[in-house]
Design a protein around this nucleic acid. Sequence first.
RNA 1: GGUCCCAUCGUCUAGCGGUUAGGACGCCGGCCUCUCACGCCGGAAGCUCGGGUUCGAUUCCCGGUGGGAUCACCA
Length: 468
Amino acid sequence: MDTVITRFPPSPTGYLHIGGARTALFNWLWARKTGGKFVLRIEDTDEVRSTKESVDAIFESLKWLEIDWDEGPFFQTQRYPIYREYIQKLVDSGHAYYCSCTPEEVDAMREEAKANGKRPMYNGKCRELNLESGKNMVVRLRVPDNGATVVEDVVKGPTSFQNSEIDDFIIQRSDGSPTYNLAVVVDDLTMGINTILRGDDHLVNTPKQILLYKALGAEPPIFGHVPMVLGHDKSRLSKRHGATSVEEYRDLGILPDAMLNYLVRLGWSHGDQEFFTREELIEKFDIEHIGRSASMFDMDKLMALNAKHIQAKSNEEIAEALSPYLAARGIEIKNPEAAQLAVESLKPRSKTLVEMAEASLFYFQETLDFDEKAVKKFLKPQALEPLTESADLIEALADFTEPALEEIFKQVMEKHELKFGKIAQPLRVALTGKTVSPGIFEMILALGREKTVSRIREAVKLIPPAAE
RNA sequence: GGUCCCAUCGUCUAGCGGUUAGGACGCCGGCCUCUCACGCCGGAAGCUCGGGUUCGAUUCCCGGUGGGAUCACCA
């Protein structure tokens, strides 16, 4: 087979939607897997709704997901001469014709058809009139009255549409601009696109596009219509279901690799495997195992997958990924090694980078935010001596390692006849201000000797005097 | 409503005529344990219904039901 050439053609009328990201992903993966090409095309022919901001948001989101393209971005608004040329070809070859019917007249035709119990359609009034180009004229494709057009869909299977059900649809508006179906076909044709994976909401206008290919004497590409992503109530995913834009997930602290993994796995499978790295996805992705039914977006599962991706990455990678989230909280990583130890301690306890950033604050803060209840409960008189002694011993410790630290606490525990739990909680509050944190030893190591000792000494000052 | 698509635990899915119907998320119980997590072990939970075809259907065919998509001079 020839080199696979796929594409992603968003219309810039908003941010990059999760569903769009998924179809982009399928096309990108297929191109990457087969060693083909992936083309980015901006469908901005709706000049009223298209914005520069949306274009930028789409680039930004694709960049974040690390979905790169080999050709483009092409902008349809810069290709009008090409569309006009093809429309002319269709008119010249008798596959299309000028129509002078006004929208009102067409509406009336549809009403009439409906009244007669027929499908509301344009009645073909101008078909044989051989009208010349003129003001307020549109161009329509002459659709065969009989026969059927079959979409050989690689995910849904062959799907047949009766030509009699298809209107002589408009390919050029009265203002001379091309309509969607025409522009898409001309673009895909001229850009050499041979594989189209898109949402199955496009399935119904695929026969129109195939008719256009045929009228142009061209071979249609391979079509595959992937099921849509639904919200938790089975309706189309929208704002009321929560986050729908790619950037929102970035802001939530989702890793791009986890997003990819989740999105692809939603509607595609490779046996029982749930976790995929980006490389595995490229290696294992195939069209054959794309599902045929719509699926609901499940935030919990995304989160769980994100947690696994966080754990699977190195401390260095996560520390780097975390830094913008820390920066947003006014924290700059000054000591990379310490930050990586901090990250390591937080990795198994963070579902998102936002959670991790929040939980890591105590590592970086100069002055701790003490949780009052925690202070009251654990920084009690009986904790004074064990804490003070611990600080002294840590300060004097020859080698600052986990075994040595364990030895110190063993001493303190034995002396005061305490279980580790009794000393760990006060210590935890002293070091973090909270009752929940990573393990004591890993924190001490990540914090370093100096901070550990000073924090314990500061906390001791919060202990009220003994009652009697 | 017409046309088209779809149908396995609550959710994502494996299954491609014979399985104790498998995995994951979530949920419940236990273990581990310095808190919280992670991890580990175990549990509850599913083939939409009705007809065929077949020795045998979750699987193949038809129909019902249900859900979705689409019916523009939007993309």
